[in-house]
């Protein structure tokens, strides 16, 4: 009964709701006290998928800019990077490009990246439309979802979609709608084969 373990890390500016997303997913609750995250926490959760069981290690990070230099060491063994922004804060949205860039620099295409627009419950303060989020996700070829940790909207789906995209032991053909994963995997191992011999056959 082998259970695959995967490390998932959350990134994003301070106050976008990284900890709240984890709390909602782990305990299906929302903590109304406003509390900045100190350092880093990690929690584990087992997930049952259609064809297998996996264990997700969720790493919550403090969004402090001073810690950015630590990201490389932190992302190195992560399979998934969840990059969160606050739909009511345009700045947090702009900064996601930088986070995604940092992750890509470290891991290339060896990592699943999910862009998350959180706080959809604050629709009257919305500054970033769903379309803008989708567009950016497409541009950077990452997955995309909008959530509300407070209202419990789409949080399970977020983690389920990420889990479904993880490489399995017997991976079947990747599903069609999810182009991202195909891209992820087809770049890695092929290259050395072409390099090994002068002729590729």
């Amino acid at each position: 009964n082998h259970i695959d373990k995967f490390k998932l890390s959350l990134f994003g500016e301070m106050g976008v709701g990284k900890t709240s997303l984890i709390t909602r997913f782990m305990y299906d609750s929302f903590d109304n006290t406003y509390q900045a995250t100190i350092g880093i926490d990690f929690l584990s959760k087992t997930m049952y998928l259609e064809d297998r069981t996996i264990r997700l290690q969720l790493w919550d990070t403090a969004g402090q800019e001073r810690f950015r230099s630590l990201i490389p060491s932190y992302i190195r063994d992560s399979s998934v990077a969840v990059v969160v922004y606050d739909i009511t804060n345009a700045n947090s949205f702009q900064q996601t490009s930088k986070w995604i860039d940092d992750v890509r620099t470290e891991r290339g295409s060896d990592v699943i990246i999910m862009l998350v627009g959180n706080k959809t419950d604050l629709s009257d303060k919305r500054q970033i439309t769903t379309e803008e989020g989708e567009r950016k996700a497409k541009e950077l070829s990452v997955m995309f979802i909008e959530t509300s940790a407070k209202a419990g909207y789409n949080v399970k789906q977020l983690f389920r979609r990420v889990a479904a995209a993880l490489p399995g032991m017997e991976q079947t053909e990747p599903k069609k709608g999810e182009m991202t994963e195909v891209k992820l995997k087809d770049t890695g191992p092929i290259e050395p084969e072409h390099k090994e011999g002068g002729c590729s056959c």
Partner: peptide, 30 residues
């Protein structure tokens, strides 16, 4: 004060994280 401290200590106490991992940092942040 606790939230302010969490958000501002890295600015006030500029502890050098060079070569440190996130796990080291957890122990160094409290």
């Amino acid at each position: 004060s606790s939230n302010l401290a969490i958000c501002l200590w890295p600015t006030l106490l500029r502890i050098d994280f060079t070569g440190k991992t996130y796990t080291d940092m957890t122990q160094m942040t409290r």
